[in-house]
Design a protein around this nucleic acid. Sequence first.
DNA 1: GCAAAAGTGTTTCAGGTACACCCATGA
DNA 2: TCATGGGTGTACCTGAAACACTTTTGC
Lengths: 229, 229
Amino acid sequence: MSPIFYQKDVHLVAIDCIIMGFKDNDLHILTARRPFEPFKGGWSLMGGFVNANESVNNAAKRVAAEFTGISNIYMEQVGAYGDVDRDLGERVISIAYFALVDIELFDRSLADKFNTRWVKVSLLPQLVFDHNDMVRDTIAILQKRAAIKPIGFNLLSKEFTLPVLQSLYEAIYQESIDKRNFRKKILGMEILEKLDEKDKNSSKRGAYYYQFNKEKYDQLVQQGLHFSL
Amino acid sequence: MSPIFYQKDVHLVAIDCIIMGFKDNDLHILTARRPFEPFKGGWSLMGGFVNANESVNNAAKRVAAEFTGISNIYMEQVGAYGDVDRDLGERVISIAYFALVDIELFDRSLADKFNTRWVKVSLLPQLVFDHNDMVRDTIAILQKRAAIKPIGFNLLSKEFTLPVLQSLYEAIYQESIDKRNFRKKILGMEILEKLDEKDKNSSKRGAYYYQFNKEKYDQLVQQGLHFSL
DNA sequence: GCAAAAGTGTTTCAGGTACACCCATGA
DNA sequence: TCATGGGTGTACCTGAAACACTTTTGC
């Protein structure tokens, strides 16, 4: 009667990573030309398989690091994708994760090695299998999460300007934000530290650099207050 | 170089269902005494394994139906749990789903067959493996989802009273709600239909029955408005 | 001196929250 | 008639949204 008396089926379990970066005022996703059949040459997310001796979370970290050259990447699980014929080659259950990286840290030599490219989310081509679904689900999660948790900073360098931070949130929400309201909100939380240097790359006047202060954020949370953008 | 040249590992993939019902003004979860080693006799969620020829979603539906006798259950994926040693017996990757059922439809004969019991969420005992994590994650998701999608009705009979609906939301949010504000909000959405009959079980005066009207809800959504409780 | 981006406060409005009394009925 | 839960409206307050001008500086 109980399952233990039956032979249980085993499955290939894959990882697919939606690796996101931010540049040119837009969210970008790392994509690769698929080097195998089926769909050889089609655009694909970064993938790999879960090994017997590693946790699913670690497999995701391994895959993300393999394709970016970055360790300690911020990642969250998107979900498991398990249609029988989702991978037309063979039955594979895939667990998707999104990763938020500082695109400056990306190891460009790996782009050649794996034939990868950063493409704007807004210009994403058709991807193989159900990878477009994974991206769609990721963006939905990201929009909700970034509004209530300070995870957006993972997409920026340690030091960033407020105009850049705002354009990041505009890219995430896909809508424009009022500059004064945005600054009021983010500065009002008192989780940013203003630095003395300015970034003069995008204006003559220059914009002050800021840094995210995790200690102050933790205090905020402990006081029962919440991040909200 | 590419993964295809290596032997890929295969895995047992399980389903664990957090099956939720509502009675006695409280959320309840269906639990079972585990009939196998390891942890034989420990409290467990409803589980099963994914077969080679079925989608993960269908496996979840199959498992939920098997233990409740109910088909067409509302379910959502919670996530994949993949620590190497999460199941102390063997390496099993589990995909958790929560299910919202009208507890009236539960087939009580199955409770004996599988040695299951409905336990209040607030009194949940220690469960085997990482099942308590799954429940915790489920409740977090449910609290967010139920606030913006009309999924709570899946926990009630087709006809329900406003006092019952309110106590459901109080159970989900784990906080009391002002009666007048609650009614203002839910009735203001105009997605409920008032019936002529009253429920006299819990008061002498009786409370009117209402029904969720999916058509009206869909209209609401199409107008760009949103469910919010 | 001008173009181009950075920086800065106040008013308005909507929606959430708080709150207390009458009603219907069975026992 | 009384105890019990069902049903109803308003005032207040907080937080979001709208909105325009000055500053800096490289060219």
